[in-house]
Every structure is written in C-alpha cells, then in structure tokens.
C-alpha cells in the first residue's frame, strides 16, 4: 500500500529467536534437499465471516474473490488462505497486520464477522528444495503429489502430530504455518527428516 510507514516497529523476539543455523550437506553433492527459513514477523490475521466480508477483504487486501475450499489466493506479498467454510487466514507483510486489522474491523461493522490478530501465536516457515515433498510426506498424511497438492492449494493437517497449515506456493516451495510454541519442534523434526537429502536451516 502507498502509505507504508517507515515507523513500523517489529518486536525484538521471534518464534525461533536464539536458535543457531543448521547445515547438513547433501550426501550426493549439490544443493540441500530442504531449506528452512522462518518468515520472521510475517503478519497473520484470522478472519471469520460469510460471503458478505468480501467487500472489506477486497478493499484492504486487493483480493477480488474469497478463496475456494483448500485453496489460497496471492495478492502481491499477501496470501489469503481458506481454513474452513467461514474462516480465512491472511498472511501479510511484517508490521502491517495491526493497520489491516483496524481497517477490516471498520469495514466489517454491522456484519457478523471477526478479525483476530494471530501474528504472535503462529509461526510461518518458508520451506523449499528438491526434496521438500518427500520430507513432508514422512510426517503428513496429505497427498503431496505435485499434481494433487499443486501451487495454490492449502490444507490444515498434522505434521508428526503438530497441527500445521500448509500453503503450496510452488512445486518445490511451501509456506508452513504452525503454532509458535510448536515451531522449535517442527523445525527439529524437519531437519531430522531431511538429513538424508541434506538440509539447511537459516536464521
């Protein structure tokens, strides 16, 4: 948005603060099969409401239609993901969530809808690499074949018992959203599962 303020302050800590980077080489040489990065402070808003929230969503995010079941729409840096029949997750630029929440609340006045800031409650990881689907498949029951779980698909599921929201942003790229308190576990599990392919966790 045009009025991006330079005064946005981000909190000093994030979900994975203080954890060292981890690198295990790919045994076959070449790039690591999995690269994990925390999308630090990525803004996250949980939006609930029926179809009448669309005008507000369009005005504040530029999204022209609500995502269909199991899909997300991308508008610039923002993703709006379907979570349930009347529930959506908006991922937005770091530091912008308060402003978007305030505006959405104004737009939703008088309709049965809610916007909740869940930025600190959830941790978003960007995961990518040639083996990313193989690694996820070790702990997730979703059909992760690239033709089934294609770019634009999203799903809430379990990754080794931890609840996750998975957004396929490309054939070998995902955004994985989990609870902040589960983030260290999820990263440790991903690193362990990806040892055979080579893995790089970057801070």
């Amino acid at each position: 948005m045009a009025d991006a303020s330079p005064q946005i302050r981000l909190p000093g800590r994030n979900a994975l603060s203080g954890r060292p980077a981890i690198t295990h080489a790919n045994q076959d040489g070449g790039k690591p099969g999995l690269v994990i990065e925390e999308l630090v402070h990525l803004g996250k808003l949980n939006i609930r409401g029926a179809a009448d929230i669309l005008p507000g969503i369009t005005a504040q995010t530029g999204c022209q239609s609500l995502p269909e079941n199991n899909r997300f729409v991308t508008i610039g840096e923002r993703h709006l993901a379907w979570l349930g029949p009347d529930e959506y997750l908006l991922l937005c630029e770091a530091g912008r969530e308060d402003e978007i929440q305030t505006r959405l609340r104004q737009d939703f006045e008088g309709i049965h809808a809610a916007v909740t800031n869940v930025t600190d409650g959830l941790c978003a990881l960007g995961i990518r690499g040639g083996s990313v689907r193989k690694v996820l498949a070790k702990g997730c029951a979703l059909d992760l074949h690239e033709e089934v779980f294609a770019a634009g698909q999203c799903a809430q599921s379990l990754l080794s018992h931890a609840g996750i929201t998975l957004l396929a942003t490309g054939e070998t790229r995902f955004v994985l959203v989990c609870r902040t308190s589960f983030a260290p576990y999820v990263v440790d599990w991903l690193v362990d599962a990806a040892l055979e392919y080579g893995v790089s966790y970057r801070t």
Partner: peptide, 11 residues
C-alpha cells in the same frame, strides 16, 4: 464435507 478425503488421525 469441506476438505475432501483426509486421514482418520485428523478427525
């Protein structure tokens, strides 16, 4: 009914 076929452990 909303998400399609999923494994029992999710339910």
């Amino acid at each position: 009914p909303h998400c399609g076929p999923r494994e029992e452990s999710e339910f």
